[in-house]
Amino acid sequence: MSDLGVLIRLCPPPQPRQAPIDWEHVEAELGMRLPEDYKVLASAYGPGSYGGDHISIYHPEGVTLYVNLTGPMPERIREHLQRDYDQGTFPVERNPQQLFAIGGTEGGQKLFWITEPENEPDAWRITVSQEKGPLWFTYDGNLTAFLVAVLSGQLDVPQFRNLHGLPADFTPGVQPPFEVGDPPMSEPVNTEDIRDWARANGLRIPPRGRIPRKVRKAWEQAHPA
C-alpha cells in the first residue's frame, strides 16, 4: 500500500475536492517543481493540519497567508534562517538556500524540504527545526511518509517528545472571520510593468495572478521609493 493509502486509513480526508489544483500555475509562481507526493497529498486533503491540529502543512489554498504555500511565510522563514546562519544567532544545520519551509507546529517548530538535488523534488527529504534552539531532526523520506511515521507512532521526533503521541487525525483549515492581506507596496504599481521588468531580468513569473513575493521584493529593491 502507498504512503498516501496508509495515511488515508489512519486519518480519512474530508469530502472530495470539487476543483483540481492548478499545479502548473503554483509551480510557476514558486519558481520550482514540487514533489509528486506533496501534490497528491494536498489534492486529497486540502488545506489543514494533522495530529490534533499540531502539524500545519502549507497549502496553495491555505486559508491565510501564514499557511499558504505561495504566501510570504516560506520566504520570511528562509530570511530569518539566513540571518541566523550568517550571524550564528541560532544553529542552522545547512545552507538556508537548500531549505524550503513546508509547515510548522503549534510549538514553534518548522518543517522544511531539503531541496537537494534541486531538480529532483521527489528525492527531497524532510527536516524539522527546534524553536530557537540547537536541535534539528532529519527524516530520510518524503512528507507523506513522514506524516505516516509520526501519526502511527513509528517515528520519534525529538522536538515532539513533550506531546506523548499525536492523534491520527486531520483538521481542515477554516477561513478566519477577518481578512488577512499581503503588505502593499509603498506606492501603486502597474503589475504588467513588474512582469515586463521580471522577464527582462530573467526572473520566472506567471502570466497572470498574484505577483510572487520574491519577484515583488526584487522589484522593490531595484526601484527604491
Rank of each mutant, 00 (worst) to 15 (best):
S43G: 14
E79A: 09
Q159L: 13
M185G: 08
P158F: 07
A101Y: 00
N201I: 11
P207K: 11
Q97C: 09
G103Q: 10
Q154D: 13
A123H: 14
V180E: 05
G107Y: 01
Y45G: 01
V26A: 06
Y45L: 01
P20I: 01
L99P: 10
W23R: 05
I77K: 08
W197H: 12
T89D: 12
W113S: 07
V40T: 12
G88K: 07
A44M: 13
F90E: 09
N190S: 03
L155I: 01
K214N: 12
P134D: 05
G31W: 05
P184I: 01
G165Q: 12
P176L: 03
T171A: 04
C11H: 02
E93N: 12
R216A: 15
W23G: 06
G103R: 09
A200L: 02
V128E: 07
R125D: 14
L151T: 10
P224D: 05
E61G: 10
E192K: 12
F90C: 08
W219E: 02
Q82M: 13
D140A: 13
T70N: 11
L147W: 00
A19R: 11
T105G: 10
W136I: 05
P121A: 04
N119C: 12
E24H: 10
R213M: 11
V63T: 11
R17I: 06
W219M: 05
E187A: 10
F160T: 02
T191I: 07
P117D: 03
A200N: 05
I102N: 03
D22V: 04
H54Y: 15
I21M: 03
R195W: 14
P60M: 00
P172H: 09
A149T: 07
D122C: 10
V67S: 10
A42T: 13
V157E: 03
E220N: 03
P188E: 05
L7Q: 02
V63H: 09
V189E: 11
E116L: 13
L65A: 04
P121W: 01
E120C: 09
P121L: 00
N162L: 13
L81K: 04
V6G: 01
R199N: 08
E61M: 10
E118G: 00
R208M: 11
F170R: 06
P20E: 10
P60G: 04
D156F: 08
E131Y: 15
P72E: 11
Y58L: 14
G181P: 00
W23F: 10
Q97K: 14
D140H: 14
F112S: 01
L81F: 10
P121Q: 05
E118W: 06
A168G: 07
G165R: 11
V92K: 06
I114V: 14
G202L: 00
L111V: 00
